[in-house]
């Protein structure tokens, strides 16, 4: 065991050369590569952090936009709902008015139809009544209806003569109107009866198709009339009572 100092010096030199060689060919490239990779990783991490922050900002912007859109949608929905409600109210009011107008028109139409029907019924009833009365008078009493009407008017007028004279005043003409022209016999009888009551008054006969069957006497401001209207009204009431009674009977028979 001995130390060769020349070898020691050579080994020190060798070792220092080896330090330089390994530093040049091993440590520097390896450490530089590691450092470069660490820098790259650090840069990528920073980029990732930056990208994450950008993504968060974009997400926040997106959330804000979605929120704004939701708010706008809610406002728009509310506006549309209010507008629809207003439009619905307007349409309902229009429909109600139109319905009321149509209802009024229908009611008016029905009233007109009822009036027309009633008038028609009146005319038909009056015609039927006059025909029946005329036929009954001719068959039973051998008289005409016009003569009996004239007698009736004269009988009504006799107790009212003072009142008629007072109402007639200074009138010089009495007018007797009928629906159709009267027979001469009847006119003569009426003229003689009226001259007895009103000697100063001339008698004139006329026709009025719109008038109900019967006679109407007008002297000055006084008027005395006998028509079949009251009979027709009575007949209508009678028919209505009979119809009502018939309905009741029918209902009762159904209930039984």
């Amino acid at each position: 065991m001995s130390i060769d100092w020349i070898t020691v010096a050579a080994q020190i030199a060798n070792f220092l050369v080896l330090v330089w060689l390994l530093k040049r060919f091993l440590y520097r490239p390896i450490l530089d590569g590691i450092d470069a990779r660490e820098v790259e990783i650090r840069d990528r991490m920073q980029e990732a952090v930056l990208a994450k922050e950008q993504a968060r900002a974009v997400e926040k912007a997106y959330q804000d936009k979605v929120h704004a859109l939701n708010v706008a949608q809610s406002e728009m929905t509310e506006t549309i709902r209010k507008s629809a409600e207003e439009q619905r109210d307007v349409l309902l009011a229009d429909a109600q008015k139109r319905l009321e107008r149509e209802h009024d028109a229908l009611k008016t139409h029905l009233d007109d139809e009822a009036q027309k029907y009633t008038a028609k019924m009146h005319r038909a009833g009056a015609g039927a009544l006059l025909s029946l009365t005329r036929k009954a008078l001719r068959d039973l009493a051998d008289e005409t209806l016009e003569v009996r009407i004239a007698h009736r008017l004269v009988e009504q007028a006799k107790p009212m003569v003072p009142d008629l004279q007072r109402a007639a005043g200074q009138a010089t003409e009495a007018v007797i109107t009928s629906q159709s022209s009267l027979p001469d016999l009847v006119e003569e009888e009426l003229t003689s009866e009226l001259r007895g009551a009103f000697p100063e008054v001339a008698v004139r006969f006329g026709t009025d198709e719109a008038q109900a069957p019967g006679l109407v006497l007008r002297v000055g401001g006084a008027q005395l009339a006998w028509t079949v209207d009251s009979y027709i009204d009575g007949l209508a009431c009678l028919i209505e009572e009979q119809l009502t009674a018939g309905n009741d009977l029918r209902v009762k028979s159904h209930e039984q």
Binding site: M1, S2, I3, D4, W5, T7, V8, A9, A10, Q11, I12, F15, L16
Partner: peptide, 12 residues
């Protein structure tokens, strides 16, 4: 395995 080498390393 040489004392010269280890001595050289120790001296270094």
């Amino acid at each position: 395995a040489s004392l010269s080498t280890t001595t050289a390393l120790a001296l270094s």
